[in-house]
Design a protein around this nucleic acid. Sequence first.
DNA 1: TTGTACGCGTTATCAT
DNA 2: ATGATAACGCGTACAA
Lengths: 341, 341
Amino acid sequence: MPRRATIIEVAREAGASKTSVSRYFAGERDKLSPALCKRIAAAALRLDYRPNQMARGLKAGRSRLIGMLVADIRNPFSVAVMHGVERACREQGLALLVCNTDNDPELERTHLALMSSYQVEGLVINASGSPDAELQALTGQGLPLVLLDRELSAVQADLVGLDNTRALDLALDHLAEQGYAELLYLSEPPERASPRRERLAHFQAGLATRRLSGEAYTMSGSDKELQRAIKAFLTRSGLERSGNTPRALLCANGAVTLAATRALQRLGVRLGETGLMGIDELDWCALIAPGITTLAQPTEAIGRQAVASLLANSVSQTAVEPRQHRFEPRLIARGSTRLTG
Amino acid sequence: MPRRATIIEVAREAGASKTSVSRYFAGERDKLSPALCKRIAAAALRLDYRPNQMARGLKAGRSRLIGMLVADIRNPFSVAVMHGVERACREQGLALLVCNTDNDPELERTHLALMSSYQVEGLVINASGSPDAELQALTGQGLPLVLLDRELSAVQADLVGLDNTRALDLALDHLAEQGYAELLYLSEPPERASPRRERLAHFQAGLATRRLSGEAYTMSGSDKELQRAIKAFLTRSGLERSGNTPRALLCANGAVTLAATRALQRLGVRLGETGLMGIDELDWCALIAPGITTLAQPTEAIGRQAVASLLANSVSQTAVEPRQHRFEPRLIARGSTRLTG
DNA sequence: TTGTACGCGTTATCAT
DNA sequence: ATGATAACGCGTACAA
C-alpha cells in the first residue's frame, strides 16, 4: 500500500533539497532557477505529490480550515447560506468543515470542541442553543467568530442575518395594501432564537400604524393544534369592524410556512381569500396554487458576508466593536395575498 | 492574544511529563496513577487544553477526517444523505469535510486535491463529472472510496445507492395498477449520471410485461420546451387503444418532479386525471393537491452505509472486490396517481 | 540561488 | 507507573 509522497522524496527525485521544493509549492518559484523548477515540477508530477496540509498547518499555526456550525442542515435556508459560505471560502483558498447539530445543544458543544481541535481559523455559527461559555472561551483564544442569523447575547461577535425590522415592515405593508385587516402571526417558540423574537416584536410593533389588528400563535409542534388555532382565528367574528374582515396568516420562517400550508389545506381554505405569507422563499412556494407570497432572503450574500467578516476580524487582532450586517429581504408577491374580488 | 495551550504546558502545569499527558488523552488512564490523573485533569481543565488534531494526525498518519464530495448541495436528496453520513461519522469519532462542486468537473478536481491534502481517511463521492484519473490515483494510494448514487465505470470502489430496478418495477406496477396505460418518462440528460441511465433503461425494459406503452423525454433545461413536450404527449391521439387512454408522467428525480409539476400547472392539467409520479420524496409533494405520488429513498440508511463501507475497506487492506449496496425505495401513494371518476 | 538545521504538537519506543 | 527522546512532514532562519 503506497503511502503519500513526502517533500523529501520529491526533493530526492528532483535532485534538489527540501527547501527548494517547499519554495516551489509556496509560490516562490521566481526565486528558483528555471531548470530546478522544471525538475521539481516533473518529480512532483511523477510522484503525485501534494503538500501535507496537516504538517503545513502544524508548522504555520494555520490550518486554512473554517468551521461552520449549522443548527439544522435539512433547512433549505441553512443550506443556501452554507452554499454562499462555501463559495467565499473557496475563493480564499479555505476549506470548510461543516457540523450539523440537529438543534441539540449537547452536540453543539461536542462539535465546537471538535472544530477547535482541528485548529479552525474561524467559526461561522448558527446556534440552536446557547453554548455561550464555550463560544466565549473560543473567542477568548482569539478565534474569529461570526454569528449567523441567530444572536447570542453573551458572545461578542459580528452578526450577519436578515434585517428583521425591514422584513416585517415589508410584510405588514404588503398585507395592509392588499386589504387584509386581521393578522395571525405564526412562529416557532421564540425563546431561544433571536430572529424569532425580533420578528415577533416587530410584528406587534408594526400593527398599530397600519391600523391592523393582529395576534401571535406559537407552534407547539403538533399539526392538529396549529390547525385548531388557525380555525379559531378564521371563524370567530370580526374584531375591528363588523362583518368579515379579510384575514391573513404571516409565517415566521420556511418551516412554519410548510406547516401552515398543510393546515390550511386540511381546513379547505382558499388561499388569497385567506391571506398567506411567509418569510423564506422555498422552491415549492410558486407551486401551491395560486402561489404563496414570500420574503426571500439573500442567502448567498449572507453566506459571503459571514466569511468576509471572519477574515476582517482575523486580520485586525484588536478586538473591534462587533458589527451587525443586516440584509434586506425581497418581496415575492403571489396569489396567496391577493383578495379574490 | 493567548494561543491554544499545548501538551507541554499542561505537563508543566500538572507537574508531569508530556508522555503522561498524552497517555491520559489517548484513553490509557488505567496506566496512570489516580493521583497523576487528577492533576492532569485539573491542569487540562484550567488551561482548556484540547489535543491538536493536526499534530496528532501528522504523527499518527491519520486525520480522523472523512471527505464528502457533493455534486449539488442544494439538492435535498444530497443533503439528506449527507445527514446520514454525518451521523455515522460522529458515531465513529470522525469529522466530515464537505465539498460542493456545483456540478463543475473542474471544481471536482480541485476539491479532490484539497481533501487529499488534508489527509482524509476516506472519501464519499457523489460525482457530477468523471474525475476518473484523479480518483484512480487516490485509490491507488490506498485511500478508501465509496461512490454515492452515481457509478463511475473506471473506478473500482463500493457503490451505495438506490435499487433502480426495484424502483422502476415499483413505479410501473403502481401506475399500471392505477389504470394508466401510456407513460412519459422525464429525465435529465442521462449521459454522465449512471442512475439516470439505469432508471431509463429499466423504464423501457419494464413496459412490455405490463402492457404499457411509454416513451422518454430528456429535459434540456428549458421549462418551455418541457411544457411543449408534455403537451404533445397529452394531446395526441391514443396509441394502443382508440379513444383517450389514461396517461401519466414519471419523473426520474426530485428536480424533474419540480419542473414537471410547474409545467403541468401551466398547462392547467388536473393531477390524477393525468398521472404524476416521481422518484425522491420532497416535503412539498404532499401539498400539491391532491398530493404527488413518490418513491422515497432511504437517505439516512444510504448515508450510513457509505460510511460503513468506507470503514470496512479501510481495515481490510487487501483490495476486496467492490460491493454494491442497493436500497429499496418506499412507495408513497397519493392523489396524483388516482384516476378520478 | 541553494542547502542545513531546528521546531511546530503529538505519539511511540525505550528506558528507568 | 513515569519520563526522556526521536520522529511525523513541513517551513524558514541562516549560512554558504
